[in-house]
Design a protein around this nucleic acid. Structure first.
Length: 267
DNA sequence: AATTTAGTCAACCGCTTTCAT
DNA sequence: TATGAAAGCGGTTGACTAAAT
């Protein structure tokens, strides 16, 4: 059953990589390409776990990495993307995202943000956020977690939707399997979850319009934010700014094609 | 010059999802 | 269908360096 173990943990090096290890890894990947991390260490003559090799390559050795300082443009893009993707929507159960047609990928913010910044890694962006941007936002008087002004009173009694609670209730009464798609969500108060980023099931109307060649979704709509102020496409409910959409620009000031969330899939 | 403190970032850890068996 | 390892992710740690005292 299952696969064989990836490596013998007792015989693997840990800690900082040496120049020799780097060279071996680079040489091996140049010759054989990326992938099959499990067998790579042995094949490359490295006393490292495959996981460690993958991390070293992705975060440090990849030739397409852009080393050096982040530009002002990159800073702003990270902030904007984080404001959209960085909310704590993890608090909604993964099961719910799955059964309701959402991709859980949308919650993996650092990798998504990294996907929009060529040559930057999720680890690098994560570190940069924690060491630079967080402070930068605080200096601007903005809470880096919520992207709201720091002195703005905290939103109390944030209403959240717990599908887990509904499922649990049903599980109790039915004594077994629950088809979550049929359950009504239970509205509960949950002070620790800020759902500034609104979520909703896929919007059928959008697909109808798209099918009939009526236009393309803006980035916000693609994330289920069609009723939000970020929406600027002709399909979204709140915005009447169809002229913006017709130019193909989304709220980030970039071409929709660039930030179409279908292009935000995992690396 | 020595010590302490703060900042940076590579690497590790633990978790979830995916996929081979 | 069940099982368990691989892959991939975000959070955290700790070694290192620079600045302050």
């Amino acid at each position: 059953m299952g696969r064989s173990p990836c490596c013998e943990k007792a015989h693997t090096n840990k800690g900082a990589w040496t120049k020799e290890e780097d060279d071996r890894l680079i040489a091996y990947i140049r010759a054989h390409g990326e992938g099959c991390w499990r067998s790579l260490p042995k094949a490359a003559g490295l006393l490292r776990c495959g996981k460690s090799c993958r991390l070293r390559w992705i975060n440090y050795l990849r030739p397409d990495l852009k080393r050096g300082n982040f530009t002002e443009e990159e800073d702003e893009l990270i902030i904007k993307l984080h404001s959209l993707l960085g909310n704590k929507i993890h608090s909604v159960s993964k099961a719910w995202w799955g059964v309701n047609g959402f991709s859980w990928d949308l919650c993996c913010r650092w990798s998504l943000i990294a996907g929009r910044l060529p040559g930057r890694t999720d680890n690098e962006i994560k570190n940069y956020w924690n060491t630079h941007i967080r402070r930068k936002l605080l200096n601007r008087g903005i809470d880096p977690a919520t992207h709201r002004p720091v002195n703005e009173p905290a939103v109390q009694d944030v209403t959240t939707i717990s599908f887990a609670a509904a499922a649990k209730e049903e599980e109790k009464s039915s004594g077994g399997f629950v088809c979550k798609e049929e359950k009504n969500p239970v509205i509960e108060k949950c002070p620790d979850l800020n759902l500034e980023l609104r979520i909703s099931p896929p919007y059928q109307h959008q697909h109808e319009v798209l099918k009939s060649g009526g236009g393309s979704l803006c980035f916000a709509c693609s994330l289920g934010l069609q009723n939000s102020k970020e929406c600027n496409c002709s399909i979204g409910g709140s915005s009447s700014n169809s002229s913006i959409n017709s130019t193909g620009y989304d709220f980030l000031g970039l071409k929709t094609g660039v930030l179409d969330y279908r292009g935000l899939e995992m690396k």
